[in-house]
Nucleic acid binder design. Sequence first.
RNA 1: GCCAAGGUGGCGGAACGGCUACGCAAUCGCCUGCAGAGCGAUUCCAUUCCGGUUCGAAUCCGGACCUUGGCUCCA
Length: 405
Amino acid sequence: MLRLFNTLTRKKEIFRPLGDVVGIYTCGPSVYQYAHIGNFRTFIFEDILVRYLKFKGYKVKRVMNLTDIEDKAISTARKEGKTLRDLTEYYTKIFFEDMKTLNLLPADVFPKATEHVPEMIAIIRKLMENGYAYRGTDGSVYYDVSKFRYWGKLSHLKLKTGKKKIKRDEWGEESAIISDFALWKSYEKEDRDVFWETEFGKGRPGWHIECSAMCTKYLGTRFDMHIGGVDNIFPHHEAVIAQNFGAFSENPSRYWLHSRHLMVDGRKMSKSAGNFYILRDLLDRGYEPMAIKYLLLSVNYRRRLNFTLEGLVEAGKKLEKIQNAIERLKYSNGGDDAEKMARKTLKNFERALDDNLNTGKALKVMEELTDEISRINPDRESSEKTLGTYRVFDSILGLGLFKLS
RNA sequence: GCCAAGGUGGCGGAACGGCUACGCAAUCGCCUGCAGAGCGAUUCCAUUCCGGUUCGAAUCCGGACCUUGGCUCCA
């Protein structure tokens, strides 16, 4: 029985699907730069979750959005003298390549924000009609958070409503005052050719509306899971809930899952600290993609994971050890029975993943099986059965365990 | 300030009331034409601190101390 930690309730809850198909929406990449390994920690987690649900017999529909319009993307395109479209198409292509390199299954739908402006407008219209939105003096449309009584429920922040912006690093009484957020931003000349003519004027979408529009379009007003990194909790997912509630009177997702950020060399990964890794840099330096994946899976997604190059080497060794054991099983023709061990391991593997997708533990039980069968000389029949067990593991983990074959 | 997570051997990381995981690293053997891989053995007073509950605590309770994360750039 699968249990997942729901940010909304801050508890592990037994997973019960709403319908025949498990609907999963995940906040995908902003395609104006290379995705880094931290991004991939989240995407790998999501991938294993999807694969595991399928293994358990669920049908899954997964939607992953591509954010191809936002402030940074626009300014990056301007700096590089490219059109927004050229820029985002390039990084989208790279992202798909990286996903393939890491053996991640593609989502069923990859909707792009720029292709869903009419859907966004429809939701903003509803929000206006329902009294959750207003036109600002600058012509933009804002969400009035004072109208939403559950504002702050997901993030568990005690937020005071107000129009003031908080100042960072000046925590005091006023620090929890938050501002309304933009649904539709009116046109500024820095936007150049990035605009749409709509009933709310010439402009472009706000930061959060795309997810409301696209999750609703592809999964309906109520689906099973919404996933992202912890940084999305506030304000992004809080805003998505507010938007959907204002438009459709319900929280769009039953479970909200958030993966924790990874650390690099014991510190938060950041460009300024020089500990910022993107996939292709690591590959250029000779590291194996599956070793990277192995390391990223070695700790449960809600725990802090410290990414180091030493850890990466170690992960590569562990993976190799398993690959070697599998290779040996293909030809072993001894007299020992491995099947019992394999069956026990599969059970423990499932138990680990059932517990909030504890991939670290799952890898551990797999390593233990590997050690056990290395000590014996399995007979032909149980070797085949054990290989079957490894195939199950690999179908869920996608680690290329049969690489040597 | 508010809200969280966590502190286990040289390192990573299990165990959530009892049998002192496991892996990596290190040392020594075995196997091997060499290499790789593998096997066996060995070493290391590990549970932040102080109380409490208990026959028994890393695990439960209370209190310290410390670390990390979030609080509209961010997966």
